[in-house]
Design a protein around this nucleic acid. Sequence first.
DNA 1: AATGAATGAGTTTTCATTCAT
DNA 2: TATGAATGAAAACTCATTCAT
Lengths: 212, 212, 212, 212
Amino acid sequence: MLHQYNEKQVQIIIVAERLFAEHGFNGASVRDIAHGASVNIAMISYYFGSKEKLLEAIFAYRIGTTTIQLEHLLAQKEISTLNKIYIMIDHYIEKMQNNTHFFKIMLSEQIKDQENKGLIEIIFNSKKKNFDLISALIAEGQKTGQFKKHIDISLLVSTLVGATNQMYIGQQYYKRLNQLEDMPDDKFQALFKKRMKLYLKNMFNAILTYEL
Amino acid sequence: MLHQYNEKQVQIIIVAERLFAEHGFNGASVRDIAHGASVNIAMISYYFGSKEKLLEAIFAYRIGTTTIQLEHLLAQKEISTLNKIYIMIDHYIEKMQNNTHFFKIMLSEQIKDQENKGLIEIIFNSKKKNFDLISALIAEGQKTGQFKKHIDISLLVSTLVGATNQMYIGQQYYKRLNQLEDMPDDKFQALFKKRMKLYLKNMFNAILTYEL
Amino acid sequence: MLHQYNEKQVQIIIVAERLFAEHGFNGASVRDIAHGASVNIAMISYYFGSKEKLLEAIFAYRIGTTTIQLEHLLAQKEISTLNKIYIMIDHYIEKMQNNTHFFKIMLSEQIKDQENKGLIEIIFNSKKKNFDLISALIAEGQKTGQFKKHIDISLLVSTLVGATNQMYIGQQYYKRLNQLEDMPDDKFQALFKKRMKLYLKNMFNAILTYEL
Amino acid sequence: MLHQYNEKQVQIIIVAERLFAEHGFNGASVRDIAHGASVNIAMISYYFGSKEKLLEAIFAYRIGTTTIQLEHLLAQKEISTLNKIYIMIDHYIEKMQNNTHFFKIMLSEQIKDQENKGLIEIIFNSKKKNFDLISALIAEGQKTGQFKKHIDISLLVSTLVGATNQMYIGQQYYKRLNQLEDMPDDKFQALFKKRMKLYLKNMFNAILTYEL
DNA sequence: AATGAATGAGTTTTCATTCAT
DNA sequence: TATGAATGAAAACTCATTCAT
């Protein structure tokens, strides 16, 4: 299951991830990836079999390491359910920021009509894990009466994922629409992240607790 | 401003839109588009100049016709502000469903590092319109005290757009996660749309009115 | 023999001549020519039959009008043979300067392996006329003892044509090699022409009169 | 500086040189060149980067090896200045005959409005070398009083180059104008070369020594 | 007589992959 | 194990010409 990639393979994966994110899967050429990773062109076929398999390798490399730590975090008893939601939001945003490239690829691949069956399964399993994790969390909150009944978990997850992605993708537009173009980029990033977190927490609080 | 495309040009645009959505911009070849539209390959250069320009034409074709009707709808006096929000949500979902391909392309192009400056402007202008429209709406609700203060419009729009997109994109996963695989597709679609609309309306109600 | 070209045809010929000279026959496209002449693309095939025929038309247009005036000039009795040579040189240089484009095309077409049989004949006839004209002139000079015997007329003509062409083509190199780059272009042109004429006259004088 | 081309690259260069000479740069297709050199089409991009770069490679390949031997020849002390001029003429004609294709390309590229800046420099440097070499030679002759004063070296070189090129290019016309069409081609070639050499030597003798 | 639309064959270049070593 | 060389297929685009009107 857990592939062990050697140094050069990881090098290739990192570069490929960036180029796939920046130009799309078809827009990034094996040549460019090889050049970016300072390896011979033939190495990509040699190591991964094909360009498609390289994409899968990226998923295998990134997805393996993710959910576990969150699981542990959420298992802790002394934290309130709502705080766990907040932690999850923070966690998601941080993870997205640290894996921008991968998040973009993941989104891109979901948009397309996926010819690649392998990826569909990988993505489904990842979603399933999130779904189960959050289901448990919501159930916990509902049992204590903190959260309202009848919450569509799938749509709730889509809300978190979709809203966050969209915010992140639309960062530059946010800058312009809110006249923050003069702010230096690192300052803006910090401000933006703060606002996102606050906004999403308020939103989830509202969604989960406010009954019409 | 408003390009008038002839029958064959529209034919090409429709096919290109579908193929760009299904395979990405670089994944769809001019050859395939020409074949799909039953025109000679050279016609695409002849009519649009280049593949990139064809993409821009798709945007020009789709974006021109959109916001106007919504503007009129929201201008009506006898509808309550909250209902206008609901109308907007319905409108967005319907529009998305009727323009799936275009929505996917739009999202795809936002994900990539946009080399195409023309598109960035087109997308920005579209976002600006939505932003202004919703800003006015929210302000209206705030003035009457229905909506809470301090709402980040940009993030709110991102929430609508992102959540809806993500739901729509993840439809097939939704089906599997909620054990609806046996339901015929048209029935599922109807059910899904109903749930989305309901969910989003509740969500927006909560977001806009619930003060911590 | 003498085609009569209408206004639009002449327009096309002028533009084609320039573009063929600047980019070569294959480097200049019918599209560019049509655009440059502000006519419909189809007009070129319509008027001339094909791109190749257009090239022939340029030759027909340019060659028809040339030698006659020189013939008259050289027929005059009161001018000395050597002065006639000088007149011919001046005439050739002026003609070249006023028909740069055509001269370039003519040279270009001679360089290539000529697939176009029509052109070969046209060029041959033009050469034949020059040959005959100069033969008569030289014979005249030889009869009076002014010119030396045994002059290879073909090579002599090649010398005039080739040297002048080469000088003209290499103008910019001349400028740089002789450190005249700061001189304004019109001044340089005048100087260059003056030098060419003087040089060639001296040269021909030497060639024709100096016996080892 | 001096590129080292491998066997296949040289193969391509030789074929490209011929085809560029015969049909012009734009008239010769990469496909034809590849076919002529019995290599895969992609190899041309692979080896040279592009068609234009291939043209530059031809220049690099041909120009590197030329002037050196002439320099040595002219450096010899025991040969009279005039004889050096004769040697130079013989040398130039032989070189032209052995590099017909390249000479044609060189001329072609000078005729066109050169978009290719690289080539301009290459050609200029080559001209500069010839210019310097001949300048020294002429100065030598002038010092001994053999040659007349005030000789425009640039125009003199143009005369040699232009006249010789023009003669060579107009070979077939020469044949017809001098009724030598029945002579077998190899015999004609030999005769023609002999006549050219003799003619040019006489001409240069006259030009350099005959003062009006 | 004149032309906008259309076309098939052509262009150069790049692609992901495989081969020979 | 690793790689420079090589390749066939495909890419987007342009070509000169013709068609329908």
